[in-house]
Design a protein around this nucleic acid. Structure first.
Lengths: 206, 206
DNA sequence: GTCTATAAAGTGATAGAC
DNA sequence: GTCTATCACTTTATAGAC
């Protein structure tokens, strides 16, 4: 049972589409631009996908799956070193935010693409549920990271962790937009300080 | 010196364009859709504007000017009643956030349009500066509101107010996106509580 | 399965009558 | 100034040869 070529083509086209969306935006991600990026003919596109919309659905699914692992890889790794030395909650948050900010400034086009794809999904009744799934995923990941941070610092959250998670996701979305607009690294660094302070205030020693 | 008709037409077209963008998105805001909304012929569009891009520039300028007054009308009004009775900082913040959230849920299409227009501007070198101006404006307005909140509550901010302002703008952007995605009013209400707590932690009694 | 060629519909912009 | 008609181009999608 070898993998059928159509499936491979779909994957190649989705990846090409993501590159085009990142580089030039959703509006410029035409079928022609995508097949050119993938090195295929236009007809091959419609052999693999019934329509451009069908590709967009798969594209959004794809980035939701990927982004999850790309943005927050800190939750699990630092959790192994038991209860030996406790970092302050504020510092753990600051470090995590820094990792996120580094990710954004390393791949600004990708983050721009994520935001555009979310809004694209919000404009289509058929795609809206994909945006909902995307943000459920974000919230779950943020909650995990916050749980881990509380454990490692010996703290507890004063609000349900899901509520703090929604705050954290809102914060990261907002700071991403602000940075994409003005690319002000100094302001972002200070913003991370302030953010770490304000979120850390939502926890207390257990 | 009566106002020349072309100027009126430009205003009418900009307003029509905003309605189209809000209802159907930037991608669907074609010249034809806009003139239909404005009740004009296609040729009249190009009599008033050289190109669609020229209208988009004016549209973004227009919404930046308007949004400023629409979103944060609280800063000045409540400031008049001197030093008689002091509200707690946390409560002032919570009320302000509630006003913002009410605005968003009252005009979700408009907020969706604002976000789309920002991203549209971010994709064009010629329009990028408009997004920068938009966010400078937001940050200035947020700083004003935070100054006012500190005064009314007899508090001082532990960080420069500009930094807290950037946090506040990021927060509102983020919570707007989250709500546009899942329309979860209960989660948003709790988010506002958590947000007010965390931002209030950045101030202390003077 | 993969191509070229083309259909069918939509786009921004303009010409030219009035 | 304002319209209708149209140009030149791009888009998604398909037909049909190979």
């Amino acid at each position: 049972m070898t993998r059928i070529p159509a499936a491979d083509r779909r994957i190649a086209l989705v990846r090409a589409a993501l590159r085009v969306v990142a580089e030039r935006g959703v509006a410029q991600a035409t079928t022609r631009a995508i097949v050119a990026e993938a090195g295929m003919s236009l007809a091959s596109f419609h052999y693999a996908f019934q329509s451009r919309d069908e590709l967009m659905v798969e594209l959004i699914r794809h980035v939701v799956d990927e982004e999850a692992t790309a943005v927050l890889p800190e939750a699990s790794i630092d959790d192994a070193n038991g209860q030996d030395e406790r970092e302050p909650l504020r510092q753990i948050l600051r470090d995590g935010l820094q990792r996120y900010a580094d990710h954004v400034s390393r791949e600004p086009l990708r983050e721009k693409a994520m935001l555009e794809l979310t809004q694209y999904a919000l404009r289509s009744p058929e795609l809206h549920h994909l945006a909902v799934a995307q943000y459920e995923r974000y919230h779950a990941l943020a909650a995990e990271a916050l749980d881990s941070a509380a454990r490692r610092s010996g703290s507890v959250w004063l609000h349900p962790v899901g509520e703090v998670a929604r705050l954290l996701v809102s914060l990261t979305d907002g700071l991403t937009i602000a940075w994409l607009v003005d690319r002000d690294d100094a302001a972002t660094a200070k913003l991370l300080d302030v953010t770490a302070d304000s979120v850390a205030a939502l926890g207390r020693p257990a």
